[in-house]
Simulated scan of single mutants.
Amino acid sequence: MKKVFTSLCLLGAVTLSANAATDRATLDSRIQAATSTIKQIMDVPDNAIPDKIAQQATCIGVIPGLKKGAFIFGAEYGRGVVTCRTGQGWSAPVFITLGGGSFGLQLGGQSTDVVLVAVNDKGFQDLLKSKFKIGGDAAASAGPVGRNSQAATDWKLNAELLTYSRSKGLFAGIDLNGASVTQSMDDTKSFYGEGHTFEDILKGNVPVPDDAKPFVRTVAKYFHSVQQ
């Protein structure tokens, strides 16, 4: 009984910390880490997200520096940012948490970066929800890598989200089925100073703050559209 009580206390502490707003300096640092993650992945084209996927991606989510050791009873989480393609370019970022599921075991013990790529409008709509489950609410698969990856021809048929991880320099698709993506509304409000909705931000109705411009420019550089 004592062990169960201790477990519940830890779970409650995790939930409270997930809902607590983060200070602006920490949020800026998270955006900078996400920017570095995208650069490091995409600067090696032969082992990066394939061009066809990059050109047609509707949203990009980056959870930098997620660690297996942070997961307690499947309730801990990684924190990251998302930007989506709009008619005027890429949107200002919003903040998300990634948690649950069995992916803690898949990621191993080292620090791991996670990248989510929405590849159609359904994937974009999923990111407007307050919470959704990968593989349940949103069809997902481990994403292919490489400039000319043959597997890049199949993703349109069976996925709304492509999921990736990067550990010790190795970038590859990962199965995140069962994990949940939740809007970090407190972090987003802390960053913008007012309560913009995720929909307003991701649809491009909110200007990109100066602190987030390097991240948005980096995504725009590597995830340009077919027409550009």
Rank of each mutant, 00 (worst) to 15 (best):
L116G: 08
V115D: 04
M42L: 09
V119E: 04
F95L: 12
G80F: 04
I96A: 13
Q110D: 13
G123M: 09
T37L: 00
I49D: 09
A92W: 02
A118L: 09
P50A: 08
V62L: 03
S102M: 14
G99N: 06
V44N: 12
D126V: 05
G61K: 10
R30E: 11
Q55P: 05
G100D: 05
Q56L: 14
L105P: 02
S102Q: 14
V119Y: 06
Q32F: 11
Q125V: 10
F71M: 09
S91H: 08
S111Q: 08
A118V: 06
V81A: 11
A33F: 07
F71Q: 07
D121P: 01
T35P: 03
G89D: 05
A92I: 01
I96P: 08
S91W: 04
P64R: 10
D51L: 14
V62M: 03
D126M: 07
K52P: 01
R85C: 05
S29G: 11
A33V: 06
Q55H: 06
L107Q: 13
A70M: 01
T97E: 07
F71R: 10
Q125H: 13
A70E: 00
G108R: 06
A57P: 02
I41W: 13
A34R: 11
P45T: 08
R79W: 02
A92Y: 01
A75M: 15
D28I: 02
I96D: 11
Q56D: 14
I31M: 07
L98H: 07
N47H: 14
D43H: 14
F103E: 12
K39M: 01
S29Y: 05
W90D: 03
Q32K: 15
L107C: 12
G99Y: 02
G89N: 04
A33D: 12
G99Q: 05
A118M: 08
V44K: 15
L66K: 14
Q110P: 03
I38S: 00
G89T: 05
G108E: 04
V117P: 02
A33P: 05
A75W: 08
N120G: 11
Y77M: 13
I53A: 00
S29K: 12
T35W: 10
N120R: 12
V62E: 02
P50H: 07
K39Y: 14
D113K: 09
V82D: 05
N47V: 10
Q125F: 07
I49K: 10
D51K: 15
K67Q: 10
T58Q: 13
K67P: 00
S91K: 11
P64L: 04
P45E: 06
A75K: 15
V44E: 06
D121E: 15
G80C: 03
Q125N: 15
Q32R: 15
I72C: 10
G100E: 02
G61V: 13
V114C: 02
Q106H: 01
V117Q: 08
P64H: 12
I49T: 14
D28V: 09
V81M: 03
R85H: 06
F103H: 10
K68Y: 00
G61P: 13
D43Q: 15
I96K: 14
D46Y: 14
